[in-house]
Design a protein around this nucleic acid. Structure first.
Lengths: 331, 331
DNA sequence: CGTTCATATTGCAACGTGGCATGCCACGTT
DNA sequence: AACGTGGCATGCCACGTTGCAATATGAACG
């Protein structure tokens, strides 16, 4: 049975209000009183009741992270940064998985929990920007990833077009001429893959390199298995390729696995590049060349956005965090 | 501005209590009234206030997952299963990272959040079983991993001794005679590594294979970098080895990376085996042989434990979930 | 000695909900 | 006609906290 303010107050011979003042560090408390109350607090191991504080103050101290799946390394690493960073704001991170399902995404955006949370950090998958903005005014929300919702919602992301173009240029510079892309998702409203594809095409065009539909491979989702399947399709189709640029590291690891299985040498016969710079890529064999977004900055910016947004309403912001190419062995 | 019961009641021309009855599905409400109230609820988009419910009912609908770091693939995958499974109990998962720090682990076990949570799922790192049991009676707690706290706390785990022995036997059976182990953590009270070491030694002894200190490599933590460093030490020491059994897949991936870098062939010159069956291992090159714990069962058992424990107090339980060897290419 | 002021402490109310007990009404029974 | 029964609906209260406004205390000053 946890102690409450009343019990502490009774035992210390002061009013409930005074105990509350001590707990919350209100300055107008006599040192002697403060000390006496503090002693009772320690003695009874009093801990403020979060539910009551939440009800009274309207602040839950919770921030929801809404994403397709936490088991995905990229999201896991991001969640780690977010959970660490949240502490500075006295927030605790809550995980909500959508499984990439549109209905579930919609539900979570203003579900039961939506009301009990000080903010939402959302990595949308199936929902279009239009659907994202059309939501009742509840907790502040920040999107991870570039979205066409400028001025309406906050979003934090790297410049995907520039990043994809830079990696493609790297492949061209190192002598590759048949550069495939794995990871397009034409069926999704979520524009991340589209932006990466755009950067890829821009760079090919600028480099005077051939490109076309046969070099672009769609995927259902971004797991290693999808990358593996895509690579198999590409090789089975007999398309000539000397490089693949995958729009996620997981796709790249799956693709590389298949390439090696088929007896290709990486990077000899085939260069493989990824996107995300997940920890696995660093220790892959060969180590994976990748686009490295500054995940810590991404997390920090998202949290700062929420914090500033809950202080005062303002138009949506677009925050771009840095990225760099991490050139390793695979490309 | 979210609607509350009072506003719905006023608009529907009934009492607050009746609206509450409709919301909570209390049967004694006339169908006509129920429908009228429901219409207003939909109209005003009424959503029950979680804080008030929590305060009134003492249930927050939150379960905390306390672990060293969520970015670790094993924990990420486990968190995914837990978040999915929690839904069936109408729980939401909350992530608390300890960074393997004893002080922080202690804090979190009965911290501010500890009181606001319906249960704790804890993967201890630095804390000893004795310290874990010595805590004020707050929310129910279940430990992940085997701990010497039988009868006092619930814990859910695979049989680490048996699993490690089985993998070691597999290495022996496939002809290896100089089998090293990477991943001992003599400085930690947490007994998982110790149990795996025990299984390893048992199997070596039973197989009549040499073992000794020079074959057992300690690590600080379980990251790929630790595995890589351990492998380097092992090779630099000139110890003759034809297999390494790593006590986590991350260690194994780091170790394998170094082995390949040094020009060894895997599994030709060196067999590498891991523990955890994380997704990366499946697509590693070569694919990683590993001990595969049933993570879904682990998650489900942990949640069931919490649920049953919050219904009625009872002595601590020890739940063993199945595991199997996942034999791939690396060993 | 009375007034003023700063400091220290307090009581009241309200946040939104659900348990409890009770009130009300219509209908059927004696 | 009086009474009992059961279906519905309601009012009151408490959960633990904090904002607000008011009050008590003591010191300083005219």
């Amino acid at each position: 049975m946890a102690a409450n303010l009343r019990q502490v107050a009774a035992r210390a011979g002061v009013s409930v209000r005074t105990v509350s003042n001590v707990v919350s560090g209100f300055p107008l408390v006599a040192p002697a009183t403060r000390e006496r109350v503090q002693r009772v607090i320690d003695e009874l191991q009093y801990k403020p009741n979060a539910a009551a504080r939440h009800l009274r103050g309207g602040r839950s101290g919770l921030v929801a992270l809404v994403l397709p799946e936490i088991a995905s390394p990229y999201f896991g690493e991001l969640a780690g940064h977010l959970a660490d960073g949240a502490e500075a704001y006295t927030w605790t991170l809550l995980v909500q998985q959508t499984g990439g399902d549109a209905t579930r995404e919609r539900e979570l955006l203003d579900g039961v929990r939506g009301q009990a949370v000080d903010g939402l950090i959302v990595s949308p998958w199936a929902l279009s920007p239009a659907e994202l903005t059309r939501r009742p005014d509840s907790a502040p929300l920040v999107l991870l990833g570039e979205q066409d919702a400028d001025g309406l919602l906050d979003h934090v992301a790297i410049d995907n077009v520039a990043a994809a173009a830079a990696m493609t240029r790297h492949l061209i510079t190192s002598g590759r001429t048949r550069i495939a892309a794995i990871g397009l998702q034409p069926h999704l409203a979520n524009g991340t893959a589209a932006r990466r594809a755009e950067g890829y095409r821009q760079a090919l065009r600028a480099g005077g390199i051939a490109y076309g539909k046969e070099l672009e491979v769609d995927v259902e989702s971004l797991h290693r298995a999808d990358g593996a399947a895509a690579m198999r399709r590409l090789l089975d189709a007999g398309t000539e390729v000397d490089a693949v640029f995958c729009f996620s590291d997981q796709l790249a690891l799956g693709a590389m696995h298949v390439a090696l299985e088929r007896g290709l040498s990486v990077p000899g016969d085939l260069a493989v590049a990824g996107f995300d710079d997940i920890e696995d890529g660093r220790y892959a064999n060969p180590a994976l060349t990748t686009v490295s977004p500054d995940k810590a900055a991404l997390a920090e910016a998202a949290l700062a956005c929420l914090a500033s947004h809950s202080r005062e309403p303002r138009p949506g912001r677009r925050i771009v965090v840095p990225h760099h190419l991490e050139i390793r062995r695979s490309a």
